[in-house]
């Protein structure tokens, strides 16, 4: 199968929020980052994919199976903000608890991961630091040969060293051909380092879906002094900010002709894109 995840016209209405008929695909074999501001709909979408929340309408297909087929979870590794384990369990209890549910559980691999991540098999879950919890979650995920990882903010709350280690774990995971990672975050610097594809959601709508490089190569930042901004370029500017000493904004690279040579043009990062897009409520 080509796409690990296929979403078509998915809608879900909550009291104060609407996921409005979104559609996107996640190709298998790569890492796809899911970005958006808090409240944009990331967690909702992921819950819908797992059938933890129930959709109002639309189609969800994960690893070729319908979203509500529970056998799909054999091949799925899920890590939300924190893994869901009983606080008094230690890694050995956790293995005993989840092992019967997975046909492919590899006990040897599990213990190898525990050792690799320096996790004490006898330590209670509640006594672990956040980073350790995430690593434990990864150990569980990696021990049943999951083909797709769904991660919701896996690196938030981790210090830079831990984050780097987590990214390494993800990279190692992807060395096998048929594995995919879908991970939502608002720490765009992590995605800069590792993501192949980006899905960008804003206010319950998909605003971009495609290669990360294409997105960051499409735009650039432009800064100039007062008077350097041609009138006809105003409407092309995204997230324009004018101040006493000049202006600053984002624009498509193809539109950079026509500016005076004194302006400074720089490449964008995902963070720049997110910031500029939300500035005036713009859309791409």
């Amino acid at each position: 199968m080509n796409n690990a995840i296929e979403i078509k016209n998915l809608s879900k209405r909550y009291k104060n929020f609407l996921l409005d008929g979104i559609s996107f695909s996640v190709p298998s074999g790569y890492i796809c980052g899911f970005i958006g501001q808090n409240g944009a709909g990331k967690t909702t979408t992921m819950k819908l994919m797992l059938n933890m929340a129930l959709k109002d309408s639309g189609e969800i297909e994960v690893l070729g199976k319908s979203g509500d087929d529970e056998s799909l979870k054999e091949e799925l590794g899920v890590l939300f903000d924190q893994p869901y384990f009983q606080e008094d369990w230690n890694p050995i209890d956790i293995e005993r608890a989840v092992k019967p549910f997975y046909r492919q559980w590899d006990s040897k691999a599990y213990h190898q991961y525990l050792a690799k991540f320096s996790l004490d098999p006898k330590q209670k879950f509640k006594a672990m630091s956040r980073g350790m919890k995430m690593k434990l979650g990864m150990a569980v995920t990696l021990s049943h040969d999951a083909k797709l990882l769904l991660l919701d903010e896996p690196t938030s709350g981790l210090d830079p060293v831990m984050r780097d280690e987590m990214l390494d774990v993800f990279r190692d995971y992807l060395v096998e051909e048929d594995r995919t990672i879908f991970f939502s975050t608002h720490i765009t610097s992590d995605l800069e380092k590792i993501a192949d594809y980006i899905i960008y959601i804003q206010d319950g709508r998909i605003v971009y879906s495609g290669l990360k490089d294409e997105l960051t190569e499409k735009y650039c930042l432009i800064r100039g002094g007062e008077g350097d901004l041609p009138q006809d370029k105003r409407k092309s500017m995204i997230g324009l900010r004018e101040h006493t000493a000049g202006f600053e904004g984002m624009i498509e690279v193809t539109e950079t002709g026509g500016f005076p040579p004194e302006v400074v043009i720089e490449t964008v990062t995902l963070e720049d894109i997110m910031v500029h897009m939300s500035r005036n409520g713009e859309t791409l």
């Binding site: 979870k73 939300f80 384990f85 009983q86 606080e87």
Partner: peptide
């Protein structure tokens, strides 16, 4: 009770269980 405290009900939903 324990399910809610540790959000275990979500664990149940990530396991291959109906």
């Amino acid at each position: 009770a324990v399910e809610e405290k540790g959000e275990l009900n979500k664990l149940y939903l990530t396991l291959p269980v109906k």
